[in-house]
Amino acid sequence: MTVDAFSPGYVELQVTTNFTFLQGAAHPEELAAQAAVLGHDAVAVTDHNTLAGVVRGHLGAKTAGIRVIVGTRLNFADGTPSLLCLPTDLTAYSRLSRLLTVGKRRAEKAQCRLSATDLFSPDGIFARGAGQVLIAIAPENPGADFPSFLSQMRDELESETYLAATHLYRGDDTRRLAQLADIAKTARIPLVATNDAHYHVPERRALADVLTCIREHCTIDSAGHRLTLNAERHLKPAAEMARLFRDYP
């Protein structure tokens, strides 16, 4: 079913809703409705270490007449690069939710603690990635071990593995995309375009900034670089995404 997501019609696969506490700046329903307006035939809901948003996302998608792609963004406590995990069947889904439950039990209230061991250990909870679509998210400055991490994902996890590429108008996007493309080529995994959406329309940037301030316990004037540079993290039409990634078909 997710295979459709990579066909010419674009689907946003990296979506943070307001079910990620103080990060996402839109309801899953709003995101689903906007995705339908833009002509996407599905929208993903990938909150951080939680599946809490998928039910509302599902309802919203149903109303909007599109599909929802259920998933989670896995953030690790030990510096392992984040992953989007999109289960394709019920077993894969239940293994993902078990992983999250265990992670939550380890940590304080409303937190979830995961490490690389959870991901890679053959007899661990995750029990390898069979049935999952995994999309790695490159860190800000991909170190020398990032390509090896990708190779390890590809080789050890029995799942479809991709590398997410974003074009967020940060100035160095051309450079960064070229670098990611090179890494992906080296690690022999395909590149997939996402926009790391945090809200459905650009007008929500202000709300996202306010959430950042609450999260970071700072005032808007002192928040500095923790705020968003621009208002580009919204859902974008397929043509726009195709233009941004035209060098990487």
Binding site: A116, F120, A144, D145, P147, S148, S151, Q152, E156, D182, T186, A187
Partner: peptide
């Protein structure tokens, strides 16, 4: 010319 992928890391992590 490209940095070879260090596979030693992978052993340690596994």
């Amino acid at each position: 010319a490209r940095p070879p992928i260090p596979h030693a890391n992978r052993q340690a992590r596994a």
